[in-house]
Design a binder for these strands. Structure first.
Lengths: 127, 127
DNA sequence: GCATCTGTTATATTATAACTATAACAAGTA
DNA sequence: TACTTGTTATAGTTATAATATAACAGATGC
């Protein structure tokens, strides 16, 4: 899987890693049970520190996206992606609220916003 | 206008300020031309430093949401909120992408996501 | 057994961001 | 003149992000 980092971005590297791996899972490019590179390998390939990769993996593990076997390595959660927990839904609302508010303040029509969401959804989904 | 800060949040205070003022504008609770408290007054009311408020105001000014008159004070942009510039649309896409990707990875149905967006849109809009 | 690879832990350092604390300045108003 | 405005400057503290090394424990391959 190809990962591209923007080292100039104000989004932390480990966050970019988490986001792109989640994107990979959403799109199906990362299949359940599929192994991910070791922290050292990925860090080496990306030219970053192993701890930065480890932090991303820990967050992904914490949210149930991956499994980490002590000496086997890292694999995408084989069965059952994380659920729509109440905490997640609350977080989702909190993330969306300021974004939607800004679109309204800029006079963006609701249809236009919905269209954008649907376009991104199609881009990111399987198929 | 009532502003409530979460000092425990990992969202910076100045960002919370920006978001809530934009929400106020979106909802119509803050009307064009309406004056905002001085940096010292707002900082005092919220129990934070004047520079934190100033940073929020500078960001809002930079995006065209408010006007700052050197000695008159701060007012909500009297006419013409900021437009749907290409830069903003690009930023909007970048903000939405990881959020939508996560919802897909968690098997959230597209309809469910759209419904949530519409619900928030209704909550945040005027009327 | 031994080297090698895994994630993990520990420690230290650097750089930057966020926030606060004071102080002072320039310009307009009461 | 006194006061308020945003603005600028300087400094200090705290937390986060990222890096650099090193070492450890457990599993695998030869």
């Amino acid at each position: 899987m190809i990962i591209r980092l923007d080292l100039e971005s104000d989004t932390p590297i480990y966050t970019q890693l988490v986001q792109q791996i989640v994107e990979g899972i959403a799109s199906g490019r990362l299949q359940p049970g599929e192994p991910l590179p070791s922290v050292r390998t990925l860090a080496g390939d990306l030219g970053i520190n192993l701890h930065t990769v480890n932090k991303a993996y820990q967050l992904l593990k914490q949210d149930g996206y991956i499994q980490i076997h002590r000496q086997k390595g890292v694999v995408v959660q084989p069965q059952g992606m994380p659920d729509l927990t109440p905490q997640y839904l609350k977080k989702l609302e909190g993330d969306l609220r300021p974004i939607i508010a800004e679109s309204i303040a800029r006079s963006m029509k609701k249809n236009k916003l919905i269209e954008l969401v649907e376009k991104l959804h199609a881009e990111l989904s399987v198929n």
